[in-house]
């Protein structure tokens, strides 16, 4: 699946969102990514958040706080984002396995400092937030209403290579 970065954002304003909340274990019996589609974030309890709502349906970027994707190693978590067209996750920090799983699938996990995430979240007051990603320039723009903010991020050359290759299987297969 062709990856598309950036787009309309949904904010999950809490730390330690775990992979059981992203995709509950009972759906791990599915053996295709597509079958996971309806169950995205089904068990996440967060004020104002509706896993079946329009906001999530339209989102292509998830923005969250610290330690996003902690818990189980299940790659079903990035997959459920992938099949729902969420190919970018921005957070203050990630759990190691989730973060690696994103890049391994050719998707983007961006870490930004708390202050930047605060500003993005505040921007919501102007209306829906649209995220732009410049991979080469390593910068993120967030637009809402007439306001626009820009933040810079870093990804390692390896993670960038995984995105360019389309994922770790492609990269490893060409090289090892």
């Amino acid at each position: 699946m062709e990856k598309k970065f950036g787009g309309s954002a949904i904010f999950l304003d809490r730390s330690d969102i775990n992979t059981d909340e992203i995709i509950p274990a009972k759906y791990l019996t599915e053996v295709t990514k597509e079958a996971l589609t309806p169950y995205i974030l089904e068990d996440l309890k967060l004020e104002g958040f509706d896993p079946k709502g329009e906001k999530l349906k339209n989102a292509t970027v998830v923005v969250s706080r610290e330690n996003f994707g902690c818990g189980s190693s299940r790659e079903h978590a990035p997959w459920v984002f992938e099949v729902n067209n969420v190919h970018t996750v921005i957070a203050e920090s990630f759990a190691r396995i989730f973060r690696q799983n994103m890049f391994n699938g050719g998707m983007l996990a961006i870490e930004l400092p708390k202050g930047d995430i605060d500003q993005m979240i505040a921007l919501q007051q102007q209306g829906d937030v649209e995220i732009g990603i410049d991979l080469d320039g390593q910068s993120v723009t967030a637009k809402a209403g007439g306001e626009k903010k820009q933040f810079s991020f870093e990804i390692s050359p390896f993670d960038r290579a995984l995105i360019d290759a389309g994922g770790w299987v492609e990269f490893a297969d060409a090289r090892y």
Binding site: E75, Q100, D173
Partner: peptide, 12 residues
């Protein structure tokens, strides 16, 4: 690790 790492582990 996730499934993609596992897959590459199995193959390579």
């Amino acid at each position: 690790v996730g499934t993609t790492d596992l897959e590459v582990g199995i193959l390579k």
